[in-house]
């Protein structure tokens, strides 16, 4: 299991390949990648991601450990960036390895649901109109109740 909070970009291909290579007894690898998406009516110049150094690493570690136990994973990977990103750039990725795909998919969704509202990151969108903090959505909080 590995958790990384970093400013620099990551290589999705290299990370996925390295993750998948280490698990001969795991039949299913799922990866999810979050990308900065442009705003259709108000082109975004950048997304700034602030985080809480120290707590962020602990929170991600804790969420990944819960996923490992709950879905009997062979391994899990979480990479989340902070700092200034532009549209099209990858923000974060998760990868899960399980014996069967059902657990691998469910664990990836579990990780994403918890990352959204329990990991101390805050996004701010910067466009020609100015800068605005992204508001948390009620659905993101409600998504946790299914686990």
């Amino acid at each position: 299991m590995r958790v990384s909070v970093q400013e620099q970009a990551f290589d999705l291909g290299a990370e996925s390949t390295a993750f998948a290579a280490g698990h001969r007894d795991m039949g299913a690898i799922v990866t999810f990648t979050g990308v900065v998406r442009d705003l259709p009516d108000d082109p975004m110049e950048a997304m700034e991601i602030e985080h809480y150094p120290g707590m962020t690493e602990k929170a991600l570690q804790d969420i990944a450990e819960q996923a490992m136990i709950r879905f009997a994973l062979g391994d899990a990977l979480v990479i989340h960036r902070f700092g200034r990103l532009t549209p099209g750039e990858m923000i974060m990725m998760v990868a899960t390895a399980a014996r069967h795909r059902k657990d691998a998919f469910a664990a990836a969704e579990f990780l994403m649901d918890y990352l959204k509202s329990r990991a101390p990151f805050w996004k701010r969108e910067i466009s020609a109109k100015g800068a605005e903090w992204v508001a948390a959505r009620d659905e993101d909080e409600e998504a946790l109740s299914r686990w």
């Binding site: 979050g34 707590m55 989340h80 509202s117 101390p120 990151f121 996004k123 903090w133 909080e141």
Partner: peptide, 10 residues
Amino acid sequence: VAFFPPMTGG
């Protein structure tokens, strides 16, 4: 002690 708005990770 830290204060902040609801988190928006992922």
